[in-house]
């Protein structure tokens, strides 16, 4: 099961420190925009174009990310791909997940039953709201909350207030039954 919080917190803190020591603070949600850009640019090659001084996009928001879309082999994008590799290896090393757990987590099953479809719909809608919110906020749990508060960034505290301000009531309403997990 999950690591003891003292060891887990220390390891997680060391990773955040290593990132800022060697490169820059960790952030993830921007890479969803980059992947969207890569996909959209494959469909419509006019979306991101090379200009005299770099890259530009016809989409106002994507413009500042045009260079990363044109060149996916950059630090931020590779970082997120590597996170998946690390997560996979760690999960395999501890024996992987049960079949039931792979379609929906125990707490969900304890509260809403075994229908995987219901779970997938909520996961999809949740993903939509999470990434829409993260882009509006300019960062997510990693970039704003962890990296931000670690650096005493005012924006990190504002973000955490909003995130927990909504997350705790929603969780209290949705997950009333406990489950073994």
């Amino acid at each position: 099961m999950a690591l003891n919080w003292k060891i887990g917190g220390l390891l997680l803190g060391l990773v955040f420190f290593a990132a800022v020591l060697l490169v820059k603070p960790i952030g993830v949600s921007t890479q969803f925009v980059i992947l969207d850009g890569i996909i959209a640019n494959a469909v419509n090659p006019d979306l991101v174009t090379q200009t005299a001084d770099g890259f530009a996009s016809t989409n106002a928001y994507l413009d500042k990310y045009a260079k990363s879309v044109a060149n996916p082999l950059n630090y931020g994008f590779v970082f997120v791909l590597a996170m998946a590799v690390g997560g996979l290896l760690s999960s395999l090393a501890r024996g992987g997940l049960s079949r039931a757990e792979r379609s929906s987590p125990a707490l969900w099953r304890g509260n809403f039953g075994d229908s995987a479809v219901k779970r997938y719909v909520v996961a999809f809608l949740g993903g939509f709201v999470v990434l829409y919110g993260a882009r509006l906020a300019g960062g997510c749990t990693s970039g704003h909350m962890m990296s931000g508060m670690m650096q005493t960034a005012v924006s990190g505290y504002i973000f955490a207030a909003g995130a927990f301000g909504a997350a705790i009531p929603v969780a209290l309403l949705m997950y009333k039954k406990e489950a073994i997990a």
Partner: peptide
């Protein structure tokens, strides 16, 4: 955005 992310 934090509120939205938190809810999701």
């Amino acid at each position: 955005g934090g509120l939205m992310l938190g809810a999701g």
